[in-house]
């Protein structure tokens, strides 16, 4: 019986024990995934190289733009390095933690594998979201952090401890928000059935976060800041570490992450009510 299903009917264990149990489970999953990846070292090395080259290419594309122009809005080439590095960091952290689970969720639902998940004594949403970690994506994430640091060095900006803390909070909030939005987009499979590639929807959408949101105009700027908050994936964290973020950014990002996770849980529960198993 899942934690969600048992709430309100059987008294559950204290919250700290639930958190501890999930933390231990997560550590076990991480150890398993790392051992699995290390078993195929050549494949891991190839995938690390592939993902790093792909990230390098994404940064290079934007850098080439600056061979032709001086600035994009107020974003000079060095500032854009900070933005692109941040985007690469946040997007690849999200991929590392959730890519394999989000892209597999459709088949988990359609094959009836979810039945087994629902019988486990942990949060089903937690389990289906974290049970695979793609370690190969940590390499491009580190590469992104390096690009951002390089941009900061070229600009000669020394961020204050407050700016660094704001940057870290904004990046973590962005990963959490991305997870929640991605998870909600994949849940469509409960109703449509035939959407095996639902998990792939996130990648092209998040690519819009490479555009500095303050250069956008009209409704698109509002949509990408408040409705689909991609501004908080690249632009806003970059502004924070450059010391030009606004006071409301950090609390808004935290609030958005909390609301997005809450909404994803509500939608997950609703989706489960539509689930009638696919196995025999």
């Amino acid at each position: 019986m899942t934690v969600e299903a048992s709430t309100g009917t059987i008294p559950g264990p204290p919250a700290w024990r639930v958190v501890r149990r999930h933390a231990r489970l997560y550590l076990a999953i991480a150890r398993y995934c790392l051992a699995r990846d290390l078993e195929y070292r050549a494949s891991l090395a190839f995938n690390l190289l592939r993902e790093s080259l792909y990230a390098l290419l994404q940064v290079a594309f934007v850098d080439i733009v600056f061979l032709n122009v001086d600035a994009v809005g107020d974003w000079t080439a060095d500032r854009m390095l900070v933005l692109m590095g941040t985007y690469t960091l946040v997007s690849n952290l999200t991929y590392a933690l959730f890519w394999e689970t989000m892209t597999r969720l459709s088949s988990v639902v359609n094959s009836g594998e979810l039945d087994l998940v629902l019988t486990k004594p942990v949060s089903a949403q937690f389990y289906v979201s974290v049970r695979r970690i793609a370690f190969m994506n940590f390499a491009p994430a580190a590469f992104g952090a390096g690009i951002a640091a390089w941009g900061m060095t070229r600009l000669g900006v020394n961020p204050s401890p407050g700016d660094l803390a704001a940057y870290a909070i904004l990046c973590v909030s962005a990963v959490v928000t991305c997870y929640a939005l991605w998870f909600m987009s994949v849940l469509g499979v409960f109703w449509t059935g035939r959407l095996q590639n639902a998990g792939a929807m996130f990648e092209p959408v998040v690519s819009l976060a490479r555009v500095p949101s303050d250069t956008l105009r009209g409704p698109l700027r509002v949509v990408l800041t408040f409705v689909l908050p991609l501004a908080f994936v690249g632009t806003v964290p970059a502004q924070a570490i450059l010391g030009i973020a606004e006071a409301w950014h950090v609390p808004y990002a935290i609030g958005t992450a909390v609301v997005a996770v809450f909404a994803s849980n509500r939608l997950w529960r609703r989706a489960l009510r539509s689930y009638s198993s696919a196995s025999s």
């Binding site: 122009v69 690519s207 555009v211």
Partner: peptide, 29 residues
């Protein structure tokens, strides 16, 4: 036609990355 929603997801790969680059250029001109 049966898998048209899957087609829509793949279509996003053709639509959004170039659109993002266009938005970047529009900010540069």
């Amino acid at each position: 036609l049966e898998y048209r929603l899957e087609g829509a997801v793949w279509f996003l790969y053709d639509l959004l990355p170039p659109l993002g680059m266009l938005l970047l250029w529009l900010g540069a001109y």
